Each structure stands twice: as structure tokens, then as C-alpha cells.
Amino acid sequence: MPVLNEEPFLESAVRTILAQDYAGEKELVLALGPSRDRSDDIARRLAAEDPRVRLVPHPERDIPAGLNPAGAASRHPIVVRVDAHSELTPDYTRLGIAALQREGAANVGGIMRAAGRGPVQRAIARGYNSPFGLGGGAYHGDGRAGPAESAYLGIFRREALDAVGGYDPAILRGEDWELNLRLRRAGYTVWFEPALGVTYWPRASLGDLARQFFATGTWRAVLVRRYGRENPWRFFVPGALVLGIATSLVALALGALGFLPLASGWAVLLAPLALYALGIAVAVLRIPGQRGARDRVLTAAALVTMHLSWGSGFLRGILLGGGRVVDRSRI
């Protein structure tokens, strides 16, 4: 488990792992990054209370750089990646290892179910859980068990993880997808098992969500530059959306200033903006779990923040690469 500024969530996450009903031996290795809150104090207390909890230093802020030393410090033939911002169901490890053995897979992942405590975080969670928000990946929905493109978190066979070299520390976001691509390239199976459930606590503000998704979009573009057509087409949609909306806004401004007469057909350029607004309206009407107008406005704001931040980051990454772009929403 990589840990960075997780004071509100760390203890609950650790206790759900220690309470797993898996009968075999287990340990929890926490990779402690340079937190500015009480995360390290909480980790040291938990390690003092339970010898199964072990601590390793992780001087970098980036997740892949913490996962590799934590994995290397672990001692068992199965490595389970977990997140300090998540809570596992009690049967997660038992069911995941059973699927790993039954299917002969190298990695098994389940469903990420986002949850929220306040109105904004709940709206963001609704975006995560809806195909109108993230969409695409099986682990954001209730798909059928089977071979998968990637896996949320992951329950790995150590020999497979070692065979492909572990996580790439040069990929600061999207490291799961990139690792699973290398596993599949090497002939291994990545398996989606919907019986596995993880509660994920997303960012609690739209500003933090925007910073997170801008970084995610940027590093997805880095993966597109590296792996080309092996990236699914859906990863290109947010960037195209941002270009379309930018075109509409420029046309709207030029039309309002009189530089584009209506007879020139400039109004056609407003189609991307109009269609996107219609799509958001449909999404807000269809996404469940909303109560009243305030929830619907927050849902719309969360969806727009996700789409435009991700798409803007993607365009930045295509043009300039990853550079120094990092997710600063927890720093």
C-alpha cells in the first residue's frame, strides 16, 4: 500500500485488510511517502499494534515508485496491491486468490465502487460509478467475469509480476493499465472478477478532482505516444471533446463580434457545444442516487470537471509529454 497524506482514510483501509477472512498467511507492507499530515504516525502505531504490518520508506510522491519497493519487501508468492483510499470487502482476498488459481491468471481485479460523505464527494462518486463519467473499464460497472484489458488494484502472481519488471516508475499515472498491458503482451491473463468489491473514496472537491484528472489525462497521452493503437479508442474522446468545445466557443465569440455572419454557416460550429450540453442533461437525468436540484447541479459539475480536465491534460500530454505534471490533489 503506497501512503501519502492519507490521515482520514489510512486506519480504516488498514483494518479492512487485516480483517480479511483469508485463511492463509498475510502481511501488509506500507510504503510511506513524504506525507505532511499524521499518516506516518498512524502507520507506526498500527505497525506497533500488529506485527503483520511492516513499513518501508518511500521518499518519492509517485505511486509506482512506492509500489515496487513495497512489493520487493513482501515475502509471499501472491502480491495484492491495495490503496489507502479504499476499503476491501471481508472476502476480497479469499475470492480473489481463488479466482487467480481457478483461471490460471497472472492478475485478478474486481469492481471499484466509489462512495462519498458530503454532497460534492457523493456527486463525484456518482460520476465514477456511471458510464457517463469514466465509462469503458469493466471495473467501473457490473460486467461479467472474464479476461480483461486491465484490473483495478490487482491480485498478482509474484513470478508474473517479476517477469515483466513490475511497475514502470516513469509512468506517474495509468501505471495499472501499463503494467497489465505488459502482462498481456507476455502471454499472461488479466482476469476481471465482479465478485470482488472495493469501496473507493474519491476526491472531495471539484478543484482536487480537476488536478487529479488533468494529471491522469496527461499521462494517458504519454501511454498513447508510447503504445499507439494498443490504447482503446475511448481514451481519445475527451481530448476530441475539448477541441470541439473550444471550436464552438471561438465561433460563438467571433459570431457575437460580427466577424462570422450567420449566413456563413458559423452556427454549425456550435454543434459540439450544444451536443455536449445535451449529453450532460441526459446523463444528469439518468444517473441514479440524486435527490433534488442541488444534487443534479453537482452531478453535472462533477461530470464536466472530469471530462474537460482529463481532455485538457490529454492534449497537453500529446503535445508536450508528461514532463513535470503530477497529481497534486493530495499534496
Rank of each mutant, 00 (worst) to 15 (best):
A253L: 07
F259A: 15
R286P: 01
L249G: 10
V268H: 08
L257Y: 01
A263C: 01
G258V: 03
G279L: 10
L273S: 08
A263R: 10
A267M: 09
A267P: 14
A246H: 05
G289S: 10
V250S: 09
L285Q: 11
Q290S: 14
L254R: 03
L260M: 04
Y276A: 00
G292H: 01
V250R: 07
A293F: 11
S248Y: 02
R291C: 08
G265K: 03
L252N: 05
A253N: 04
G292Q: 00
V284N: 07
A283D: 11
G289V: 13
W266L: 03
W266C: 00
P261G: 08
Y276W: 12
G258K: 04
S264V: 08
L273C: 06
L275Q: 11
L269Q: 04
V284F: 04
A246V: 11
V284T: 14
L269N: 04
G265R: 09
A256V: 11
V242I: 01
A246G: 14
A253W: 02
S264D: 12
A246C: 08
W266Y: 15
L252D: 12
L262T: 13
L273W: 12
A281G: 12
A263K: 08
S248D: 12
A256Q: 05
G279K: 06
L257R: 07
L254H: 05
A271D: 09
A281H: 07
L254W: 02
A267L: 10
G289T: 14
F259C: 06
G258A: 04
L254N: 11
P288M: 03
I287T: 14
A251M: 00
A274T: 11
V282G: 09
G289M: 09
L273A: 13
G255N: 12
A277P: 03
I245S: 03
G244H: 06
L273I: 10
G255T: 11
Q290W: 01
G258I: 04
T247M: 06
A246F: 04
L260I: 09
A293R: 04
L278R: 08
R286V: 11
Q290Y: 00
A271L: 06
G244C: 03
V268D: 13
I245P: 09
A246I: 05
A256S: 09
V250D: 03
L273Q: 04
P272H: 03
L275F: 11
L285F: 11
A246M: 08
L270F: 06
T247H: 00
L243V: 07
W266A: 08
G292E: 12
Q290P: 09
A267R: 09
P288W: 00
V268S: 09
G289Q: 09
P288R: 10
G265V: 02
S264I: 13
L285K: 09
A246W: 02
